[in-house]
């Protein structure tokens, strides 16, 4: 009897905790987004007012536009650079594991550490620019972090630095999974190395690309700590992302209703990307069986 129900019994506490701690609070946030909550949660229903106001706020438009720019650059650079690193490491080089660790290591740091280091490094007063000036290159200029148009790209730099190793690891695993017989056959047929990669290897990495993309998209949407440390949303609000918007409105502006509405919108954004992925994943698993 016990043996029969053991799996269910073991899994129940975890399921209940996740149901309450994750889905319960998602529901709570969604409920808050339809109320007039200000400093603390309240339950006076106001319909879609918070959503209407959210879309009227310029700050939200800016945050969403920034998220698009940030995601495109972050994901594209991470994929290209990660694949390149993986291909280079895959050349049967000496001390491969050392390089792999070096590239993967930034992943182990918290975003706060990464952000602080990059903030100092990019600060024209104490970082790269000032060091170059001390070396005598007086005309050197790199003040992106203080420039409204470019500050967002400094966040991209730091975020890429942090996660490119992770993309590399996934691609490397994908590369290692390719059938070596096929490569040998290609070589026998006289295919050049570039052709092998373009025609045979990279097309076979399709599944890996999808996995990398989904993880990076989700990473991009939840980027928050990096921004708080590096620019705190500034200059002005040039580096606001929806996550920063959500925190600002919920906790420092006492407009919890609008903050909750923005959180729900972020959830919807993630869902749009993740749900098709799960569907696709389930379908392909079914095929394998």
């Amino acid at each position: 009897m016990l043996k029969r129900y053991l799996p269910q019994i073991v899994i129940t506490p975890g399921t209940l905790l996740v149901a309450a701690g994750v889905y319960g609070f998602i529901g709570f946030t969604a409920a808050i987004s339809f109320t007039d909550s200000k400093i603390l949660p309240s339950f006076n229903y106001v319909g879609l007012r918070n959503y209407e106001n959210l879309f009227k706020l310029k700050a939200w438009d800016i945050a969403v536009a920034n998220l698009l720019t940030f995601s495109v650059f972050y994901i594209a650079i991470c994929c290209v650079l990660g694949l390149l690193l993986a291909i280079l490491i895959d050349q049967k080089i000496r001390a491969e594991s050392v390089f792999r660790s070096i590239y993967l290591y930034p992943m182990a740091l918290s975003f706060i550490v990464t952000g602080t280091a990059w903030k100092w490094f990019l600060d024209p007063g104490i970082g790269l620019e000032s060091v170059m000036h001390q070396f005598g290159w007086a005309s050197f200029e790199f003040n992106w972090i203080k420039e409204r148009e470019f500050a967002l790209y400094t966040i991209v730099i730091a975020a890429v630095w942090q996660t490119v190793g992770f993309a590399m690891a996934l691609f490397l695993a994908g590369l290692r999974g390719i059938d070596s017989e096929m490569l040998k056959a290609a070589r026998v047929d006289g295919a050049k190395i570039l052709q092998v990669y373009r025609r045979i290897i990279i097309p076979q990495l399709g599944y890996t690309f999808v996995s990398v993309m989904v993880i990076l998209v989700y990473n991009a949407i939840r980027t928050y700590d990096l921004i708080v440390v590096m620019t705190n949303g500034g200059p002005g609000r040039a580096t606001w992302l929806p996550s920063v918007f959500m925190y600002q409105y919920t906790f420092t502006r006492n407009q919890m209703g609008i903050g909750a509405a923005s959180a729900v919108m972020m959830l919807a954004l993630i869902a749009v990307i993740v749900i098709p992925y799960f569907w696709w994943e389930l379908k392909s698993q079914g095929k394998q069986k």
Binding site: K58, A59, I62, R148, G234, P235, G236, R237, A238
Partner: peptide, 11 residues
């Protein structure tokens, strides 16, 4: 202050 800052930083 949002609008003031946005103006101050040229946005």
């Amino acid at each position: 202050s949002d609008a003031i800052t946005a103006f101050f930083n040229g946005e």
